[in-house]
Computed example of a mutant assay.
Amino acid sequence: MSHPSPPAGHGPDQSPAPRQRVVGMLGGMSWESTAEYYRLANELVRERLGGLHSARLLLASVDFAEIERLQVAGEWDRAGQVLAAEAARLQAAGAELLVLCTNTMHRVADQVQAAVDVPLLHLADATAAAVHAAGLSTVGLLGTAFTMEQAFYRDRLAGRGLRVLVPDAADRAEVHRVIYDELCLGVVRPESREAYRQVIGRLVDAGAQGVVLGCTEIELLVGAEDSPVPVFPTTRLHVEAAVTAALEGVPVG
């Protein structure tokens, strides 16, 4: 004899558990650091959910040579158009939130966000939150010349209550050179690590309580052991924010 199903609203709740949101990664700038985004996202999801869990990701990887040419030419609007089109494709493919896997190209973050309906998690916001959580108010900023010298990134941090120091002109030139001529090509040299350590030391002497590693490649070269003050690795901080957003409400285990 068959038994009727319980009427709606009765019996155990059979609704499925919330699932991970799909994170769209807009990367390739350079692929060396985008690979770190992918690795970190999967490691963090596995740590939080356990077992064989991994991150639900979509990746759009652009040709960095095209973007770098537009950077040097100052054609930021055109670069923004390229990235906005890629962001729209990620959304169309099912991305539910986006991360732009580069500090420098947050110069066009507003243009990218305007092209999609899903949230773009701003890297500088995740960084500022971590600095505040550490109880600091003054940070040194390392990054490409564009990030250190233009207002878009420094102002975003300053707008969140932080005082931002940048290296002097000679140090900025060396930090930028190492990023483009070495780290973006997968070259990690001890001499460049030492040069970065000296730049960090001069920022600390100028009053920096912490140092923002404001280029996603810099984490390939230096870390906490290379600084007398806390460092803020923007790649990891950005991925942590994305994973937290993607797993909101998802049960552990």
Rank of each mutant, 00 (worst) to 15 (best):
A73D: 14
G74V: 04
G74S: 09
W76F: 07
W76K: 06
R78D: 09
R78C: 03
Q81W: 15
V82R: 14
V82F: 11
A84I: 10
A84V: 10
A84E: 08
E86I: 02
A87P: 01
A87S: 07
A88H: 11
L90V: 06
A93W: 12
E96C: 00
L97G: 00
V99Y: 02
V99K: 01
V99Q: 05
N103L: 08
N103I: 04
M105Q: 10
V108R: 01
A109V: 12
D110M: 08
D110T: 10
D110N: 12
Q113E: 11
V116F: 07
V116E: 07
D117I: 12
V118T: 09
V118M: 10
P119Y: 10
P119W: 11
L120R: 05
L120A: 01
H122P: 00
A124P: 02
A124M: 11
D125S: 10
A126R: 07
A126G: 03
T127D: 02
A128D: 06
A129N: 10
A129F: 05
A130V: 07
A130P: 00
A130Y: 05
V131P: 00
V131C: 06
V131G: 01
V131K: 10
H132W: 10
A133Y: 09
A133M: 09
A133G: 05
A134V: 06
L136P: 00
S137I: 09
S137C: 12
T138N: 03
G140M: 05
L141H: 03
L142Y: 03
A145W: 12
F146A: 11
F146R: 12
T147M: 06
T147A: 06
M148W: 09
Q150E: 15
Q150F: 09
A151W: 14
A151P: 06
A151V: 14
Y153G: 00
R154D: 05
R156V: 01
A158Q: 15
G159T: 12
R160V: 00
R160I: 01
G161Y: 11
G161S: 07
G161F: 08
G161L: 11
L162T: 01
V164K: 09
V166L: 04
V166A: 08
P167I: 13
D168A: 11
A169E: 15
A170D: 13
D171C: 06
R172A: 02
R172N: 04
A173F: 07
V175T: 03
R177N: 06
V178S: 01
I179Y: 01
D181Q: 15
L183P: 00
C184R: 11
L185M: 14
G186P: 00
G186M: 14
V188I: 15
R189P: 00
P190G: 05
P190Y: 15
P190M: 13
P190W: 15
E191D: 13
E191N: 04
S192D: 14
S192E: 10
S192H: 06
S192I: 04
S192R: 05
A195G: 04
Y196Q: 04
R197F: 05
R197I: 08
R197W: 09
Q198S: 14
Q198F: 02
I200G: 01
I200T: 03
G201T: 08
R202C: 04
L203I: 12
L203P: 01
V204Y: 08
G207D: 11
A208V: 08
A208M: 11
T216Q: 10
T216F: 02
E217L: 02
I218H: 00
I218L: 10
